[in-house]
Computed example of a mutant assay.
Amino acid sequence: MAYIRKRGRNSYLIAVYLGRDSKGKRRWHYETFYGTEKQAEHRKAELEVKYRRPSGPRTAAMTMGEYLERWLDNTEGTVAESTLETYALHVRHLTAAVGEMPLYGLTGFDLKTRLKDYFREYVKTRPLSPATIKGIYGTFRTALRQAKADGVIADDLAASLKAPRVPHKERRVLTPEELVRLLEAAKGYKHYLVIRLLALTGMRLGEVLGLRWQDVDLERGVLTVRQSVNVRRRKPNDRPKTEASVRQLALDQETVTLLAAHRREQEKNRVVALQGLVFSATDGRPLREMAVRRTFWRVLKRARLAHIRVHDLRHTAGSILLDTGVPLATVAAFLG
């Protein structure tokens, strides 16, 4: 909305309505123009294009923090629970950085500047990895794209946000000889069978902890990955990470023998596991991820191997297959 008012000879006042600020107060852009009435009309049109915004008064009064909270609420049920938890962690940082900024008049430059300043100060006192910062930028772009699609903002602000570059970190994988040492050192530990499955099948930790007896065929020596576990909440997910994650994996005879012995032990001790889980804690729920990780760290030390992550066992399995000549597509399907 805009209007022109004649002020004098060849002088016009152009007013363009900007919407409402964070307190709901109306805002206008005023400009005095010198020229003919027709030229003033052209200038008014230019200003309307410059300040055009499709959102209404209530949207104009919304802050970025308010929008992010609404976006988070609307996202619930559309993504995996673990993804929603990650979004919530990221939104806390975003709210601290840009939460008080009104949606009206936002530019990509403003957002980039505020985010850069926030993270520069934050990391001076608390650790925050470049990968985490990159993830926060990714979440913000997702939210901004939704805001654009919903008509909450007029411009595609997500396009201007470029996450800081994450330095490439070469992840170490075990050689076949080191893998043998690891498995030998793991024998006798409570979570040996979990570590063995992680190392030989390339399964994700959540997939191993979510494995059910109904998905294990001991006679055929095959297991089927059908679900995983939210390792933070110790809660089974009703589906794996991706559609490609549903897959069958062949087991070696020693692992089949160990699984059969583990099942007999469960039955002997009358363990009642949630959903018939292969691995469960005393309360029947999935094992605590930190219990597995601590065991893994002890095994590495005992085997005199350099520190690697549990997830690096997955990369190890894939790397060994590739080194033996297995096609990349086959390895990708194997890892899911």
Rank of each mutant, 00 (worst) to 15 (best):
E85D: 14
A143I: 04
V292H: 03
G151N: 07
R302C: 05
S245F: 12
A186F: 09
F119I: 05
A332K: 15
N237H: 14
L223W: 03
L128G: 13
R233G: 02
K241Q: 04
E121F: 15
G151D: 05
L251I: 12
T36D: 01
T201I: 02
A45V: 15
I136G: 01
G108H: 00
K6G: 04
K190C: 08
R232I: 15
V123G: 05
L182R: 03
T95H: 06
A261T: 07
R58Q: 14
R196E: 09
G135L: 10
T316F: 08
R5F: 09
T242A: 06
E76A: 08
V16S: 06
K23L: 14
L197R: 01
T132I: 08
R141M: 08
L182P: 04
L106E: 10
Y87K: 03
S82H: 02
V272G: 04
L211A: 08
R304A: 15
A291D: 01
T139E: 02
V216K: 03
M64I: 12
R120F: 14
D156E: 01
L197Q: 02
V123Q: 09
R294M: 11
F334D: 03
S280R: 00
L115R: 05
V326C: 00
T242P: 04
R270H: 15
E254G: 01
A45Y: 13
R204H: 12
V272L: 11
G105H: 04
A199W: 00
Y12H: 12
T330K: 01
L128S: 13
T201Q: 02
A158D: 02
I195S: 03
K112F: 08
R302D: 08
R5I: 13
A186Y: 08
L205N: 01
Y17M: 07
Y192N: 11
L274P: 04
W297N: 14
V246H: 02
R70P: 07
V49G: 10
L198A: 09
I153T: 12
T113E: 09
M101N: 00
R293E: 07
N237R: 13
T224E: 00
L68C: 11
D323I: 00
L68W: 10
A306P: 15
K268D: 07
T324G: 08
V152S: 06
V326I: 02
R204L: 11
T86M: 05
I14E: 06
K50G: 04
Q266S: 00
R304H: 15
P130N: 01
E76Y: 04
R126L: 10
V222A: 06
D283Y: 12
F296Y: 05
E170V: 12
A88H: 01
V173A: 06
A147C: 15
R114T: 11
R165G: 10
P57E: 13
R141S: 05
E177M: 12
Q275H: 06
G188V: 12
T257R: 09
V331C: 14
R293S: 03
R26A: 15
N230I: 06
T257S: 06
G206R: 02
D21T: 03
Q248H: 14
L223S: 07
G56D: 12
V208W: 05
V152Y: 07
T242N: 09
Y118K: 05
L68Q: 08
A88Q: 01
E267C: 11
L313I: 11
M290C: 15
F334K: 09
V256S: 06
K38G: 14
P130E: 01
L277M: 01
R233H: 06
A303Y: 05
